[in-house]
Design a protein around this nucleic acid. Structure first.
Lengths: 216, 216
DNA sequence: GTCTATAGGGAGATAGAC
DNA sequence: GTCTATCTCCCTATAGAC
């Protein structure tokens, strides 16, 4: 059975298993806090074997980030393609993103952490360029949706970049907040009931803050 | 001239200079990404001298975080003490926090990063306990204000813990977002005009989302 | 309070056998 | 594709002189 057939059977390639393990470790301890020795042990490989699949630690980190961004970009494209009025599409894309972040507990932390690591990711590898392109694509898609809603008069006139940053803070941050969020909320931020509540909260926020008065 | 007199003259103790430098480094590269050699060079001391002022790297990190939290707690207490109706106090405390975060460019990143480092800060040093107490105090103060606003009927009935997390995302995250935020906004998030805009945006969000209909 | 010297270990990465 | 062995460098922390 070759590698492709193995994956069709639900098994994973070494590359995928490394990426999965690395994602969890980087989420918990950050780029510099993870040693390749520890990662190799977790996957059940020798440390040197990692270098057969990834050429360096920065490149591995970039691959982890890019895989997450690719998942998100795919979901955003899919959500937006289903059509509807701007507010309908906006609420759907936010709902779907919250579902995605809730299903992949490491994603929110890695995404926020990667924003803070300006230094580490100054490189020019293929993965990093791809990651930047995916980020730009996601942001451009949602910006276009917001501007469209304003043009057709469904949304109030708002500062689009500012709202984008706020939306990220509102949706991504709670899933990255770990024990702190757990303590504040009194329950796990990933608990299905809490995810549902956060969807409602975000939707209410958009309806109160973004809908044009005539649209209510 | 002794140490206290020196500080009155505007000079800093070694301890303060170490904390300032460490804050900048930890903000940029995270706990594990900073070496004490680099920190010592930046301060202009030998590496060993750091251990005269702090007993270990985790304790130094905790001291950095606790100093930030103490600044914030002091400002929150001061803002809330000036009185007024709940919405007036809430808008003032948010305004003041945004000013504080804008004036201390490393604070937002360190605060968010420290939330992600559940592992590193599992300790029981005096600084860590102090940091947890300060965090609890800040959160309790703002929670109490939100509940008071709801009780007197000025605020709609909202889920207080959820709104707390959202507010942190809305206010702290943009200052931590670095080059990403800069690219989205098209300007430095710390630019005075942008800080002013973010204050307005946050105030509008609170007025649209939190004020009770009768209060408009 | 700051220094030099050093202990003791772990990091990322490479070479080359199998 | 995985392994063992090894390179070189840097890490936190300590000892002890000044």
């Amino acid at each position: 059975m070759n590698a492709v057939a193995a994956e069709n059977q639900g098994e994973q390639s070494s590359r995928e298993r490394i990426l999965d393990a690395a994602e969890g470790l980087f989420a918990r301890r950050g780029y510099a806090g993870v040693g390749l020795r520890e990662l190799a042990d977790l996957v059940g490989l020798g440390k040197s074997s990692l270098f057969h699949h990834f050429e360096s630690k920065p490149q591995l980190y970039a691959a982890v980030c890019t895989r997450i961004l690719a998942r998100i970009a795919a979901r955003v494209d899919e959500s937006l393609a289903r059509g509807g009025a701007p507010m309908e599409r906006l609420e759907r894309v936010v709902d779907d993103l919250l579902d995605l972040l809730a299903a992949q507990p490491s994603d929110a932390r890695i995404l926020l952490r990667s924003l803070f690591e300006d230094d580490e990711l100054a490189g020019e590898t293929r993965e990093e360029r791809e990651g930047r392109e995916l980020t730009a694509h996601i942001m451009a898609s949602i910006s276009a949706l917001l501007r469209e809603g304003m043009e057709v008069g469904q949304f109030r006139s708002v500062h689009v970049p500012g709202l984008l940053l706020s939306l990220i803070g509102q949706t991504v941050f709670p899933f990255a907040s770990g024990e702190f969020g757990q303590e504040i909320l009194g329950k796990d931020p990933f608990d299905p009931a809490e995810v549902k509540r956060r969807k409602r909260e975000t939707r209410d926020l958009l309806r109160h803050g973004l809908l044009a008065p005539a649209g209510r």
